[in-house]
Design a binder for these strands. Structure first.
Lengths: 241, 241
DNA sequence: TTTATTTTCTAATCCATGTTACGAACATAA
DNA sequence: TTATGTTCGTAACATGGATTAGAAAATAAA
């Protein structure tokens, strides 16, 4: 369940058992509903078990910026356990299944087990690294590269879900949401996506996306998966893609 | 020294003593030098003691995006202790004084003292929150608001350094660097800054910046300091600014 | 089915920001 | 001082992406 922690730290069997034995309840959210809102205070941690969700913030002028996409296994609101109120919203993209863990349970586990605490820190740091790459994407790449980069990231992250990078996947986002994620208008996302399709770099069938030329596409997207830190510390690099 | 940790967790006297007793060596960097480079592996943690620095990344087309500004007290490369190689560069903005702490010392302290581990997590999360706000800034605000927002953030963060928000401060960045931080051209930064000055919202004397109308300026900047999480969890909100 | 609603797609026009270019002001070093 | 290099300031022009407005297609609801 949550043992993708193991990517960054080595967990003992006891550690794994502790994580799997965490008291939790499961809840279901339908598509488009809010899991957390800007300003919320809470005393439990939630984890996304299945479905997709996204973090976002609204500016004073009512514009939305999507901050990240959550995929199964991601921790949704660890932050609120360590800081004060939430500073952004989390909303579902598809129907979602969510585990709720009481704050105390998680914190005592973290203080009892160094490996768990380390995993929490590492996971937070990977998130931060992804945020940084998004900044680069939004701030310094043109529309075409930006969109391509987002699609690549999705492909790469779904790898953990068993869909190898370059393989077709279902994109659970509308063009409007894509635009809000990369700082573009809906109209321009459409134009740009059309451009990629016309050039044979992307093939689209409803929400299904395929990349006929994955290698070339990654170059076009200025994509290098290093920032996702998918490998364990100490593992030899080995350029998987 | 590093006990701005205390903002987010309550540290016992022993905790404080432990932090202050950390083995470390001090190094000096001149302005413009690299403290860490994309790809670096390291076995020690560094903390900025005085001066300013910034994180940045370079795109495939050679464009630079500045990711954050480091001010005294900030931890520079905690990440590399928990993940693999660095995924971005850190470069000084002014001459800097830096403490280097061996990885083991820090990690044993973190695993011995829950409060310290919590402080590390909280600090990482504040960084992440700032990244998110930058994404909003870069992705969804216009040039004027964007620049104003960055100046506000600087003012607010310097508060910890003893310069109250709204008070004049020295901006340690060139217009080119400002541009790379907010995703604009040097030329446009100049235009925009000039606009703010003409409208009486900013007063500039060399690198010194003053805000004659701080309250109005914050509105113009769409700035709300909540995302900086400057207050301790549990502390009553109390709108300081 | 039919109707309602959301999402996609396209075209025409506009404008905020990028580009290029260069002189002035300031630093820093020799 | 005089050289040399940054940084700042501005003007003229180019353009990528925003805006506005709808029509077509897909999806959901009745």
């Amino acid at each position: 369940m949550v043992n993708k922690f193991a990517i960054h730290v080595s967990l003992s069997d006891l550690d794994r058992a502790a994580v799997q034995g965490l008291p939790h309840s499961v809840r279901y959210f339908e598509s488009g509903s809010y899991i957390a809102r800007d300003g919320d205070l809470t005393d439990h941690c939630t984890v996304l078990l299945s479905g997709f969700a996204f973090r976002h913030k609204i500016t004073g002028q009512g514009l939305r910026q999507i901050l990240s996409i959550l995929i199964p296994g991601d921790i949704i609101n660890l932050q609120q356990l360590y800081l004060d109120a939430a500073d952004h919203n989390v909303q579902t993209l598809t129907p979602c299944k969510i585990a709720t863990i009481p704050q105390v349970a998680l914190r005592t586990m973290a203080s009892d087990r160094t490996a768990i605490a380390d995993a929490l820190i590492a996971s937070t740091m990977v998130d931060a690294s992804i945020y940084r790459e998004w900044m680069v994407n939004i701030g310094r790449r043109d529309a075409r590269t930006r969109l391509a980069h987002l699609l690549c990231e999705f492909a790469a992250r779904l790898d953990v879900q068993g869909i190898a990078p370059g393989q077709p996947y279902e994109l659970p986002m509308t063009q409007e949401q894509l635009g809000d994620a990369i700082g573009l208008t809906t109209v321009h996302v459409n134009r740009t996506l059309r451009g990629l399709i016309k050039d044979g770099l992307v093939f689209q069938n409803k929400r299904g996306i395929t990349f006929p030329e994955w290698e070339i596409f990654m170059v076009e997207a200025d994509f290098n998966s290093r920032y996702l830190h998918l490998r364990e510390r100490g593992t030899p690099p080995g350029y998987s893609f």
